[in-house]
Design a protein around this nucleic acid. Structure first.
Lengths: 211, 211
DNA sequence: GCAACTTTGTGCGTGCCTTCACAAGCGACT
DNA sequence: AGTCGCTTGTGAAGGCACGCACAAAGTTGC
């Protein structure tokens, strides 16, 4: 996003502009930016190139991190072909599945290998991030393999809560839950004067239920 | 998840068990459940079937909501074929794209139509939720069409911040940002004794930057 | 050089969310 | 029937994040 601004010819950008574009409070944005150091100029704004550079440095975006994708189903296939990851510094460098019909084929020039090869291949290619797009029951086994391979970041699309050692960080993405949250908010808004006390609590607390 | 518990033969479940399974604090879980009424039995736990029923009622999961999917690229194609939505009460009932090569084909038995047909088709099929998986530049236009069609929940996968009227609820899903958050947390953890004050602020505030 | 305007950086108050801790209630066992 | 153990439901406290509002600092115009 900052990159776009830079290409559009903007030399500097004010916190108000950035805040309006991202829908965040300007004060909060300035406070966040102040945590990484004072790189703004009072009366002018933030120099786009300097800000971009500093953010990349702090967020660790300056070195690319290899991603392994396990589970070449519908979703996995799409993510393997999604160009957005590589463009943001996360090249998908290894694909895995259990299906013998899938093992051996190439997607976007990347060979699909058997899950048994996860430890070896991930170590060889220095994979630091794993994405799990398998069906739920297979996810924990795959996760264990990734952890064994030294992967310490896992993005989990399977509808299960993964058990991992403390040093491993897991983020869960459940698209159906996203839809439920949306539907819940709108349903609540339709109730004229609905109890404002229970706003969001239920959604946060009971996420992941499956009728 | 509760459904799985029920099938596994558990009649009742305690807040501690549920909390352990979901990784949430037990007290918070109980408080959340208390907001929808007291359906637990002290000394025993929560009756699984009753709790499931109540949660479905409160979360509005008892009536299915039709979903329209716009943008049949890699990701859109995968989501159109993803069975998880229909199983959770969100049947994908309409597909749209601008590409003439795609318009007319069927995915999972659903016809892909031109985006110009969005207002008419969405109204006819009573679509309440829209999912946008178009490239960034096309997203706002598609969004406007959906809003015009009366859609009030939008799940946005495009890397832009959508401008919508107040009554429309938008949720943004950016998978690259998820990876960045993961990478950031692990990078921070590697810094021995890194400044604990700046924990997460930067990630929340500056989400969506693109180098 | 001075005044007026802009924009950053931040101290402080407010309100929400989380979590601890405990009373109330229910079942089992004697 | 009474007691003991277990679990829910909730009051209260603590912490955290958000956002207002203002001082500091820089730029522009005269």
């Amino acid at each position: 996003m900052l990159g776009e601004l830079g290409e559009q010819g903007a030399d500097t950008v004010s916190s108000d502009e950035l805040a309006a574009a991202t829908g965040v409070n300007p004060a909060k944005l300035r406070k966040d930016l102040s945590y990484i150091g004072s790189y703004g100029i009072r009366g002018v704004g933030y120099e786009v190139s300097a800000l971009t550079h500093q953010l990349e440095r702090v967020l660790g975006l300056n070195h690319r991190q290899a991603v392994a994708l396990v589970g070449i189903g519908n979703l996995g296939h799409a993510l393997a072909g999604y160009g957005g990851f590589d463009g943001r510094g996360f090249p998908v460098t290894a694909l895995f599945d259990v299906d013998p019909d899938l093992v051996g084929i190439h997607i976007n020039g990347i060979l699909v290998q058997d899950v048994a090869a996860i430890p070896e291949v991930c170590r060889a290619r220095d994979v630091t991030i794993g994405m799990i797009t398998t069906p739920g029951p297979a996810a924990q086994g795959v996760c264990d393999l990734l952890v064994e391979a030294g992967v310490r970041c896992i993005l989990n699309f399977a509808p299960v809560v993964l058990q991992v050692p403390g040093e491993v960080e897991v983020r869960k993405v459940d698209l159906a839950v996203e839809l439920q949250i949306l539907a819940f908010h709108v349903a609540r808004r339709n109730l004229t004067g609905g109890d404002p006390e229970s706003n969001g609590h239920v959604v946060n607390g009971a996420g992941g239920l499956k009728p």
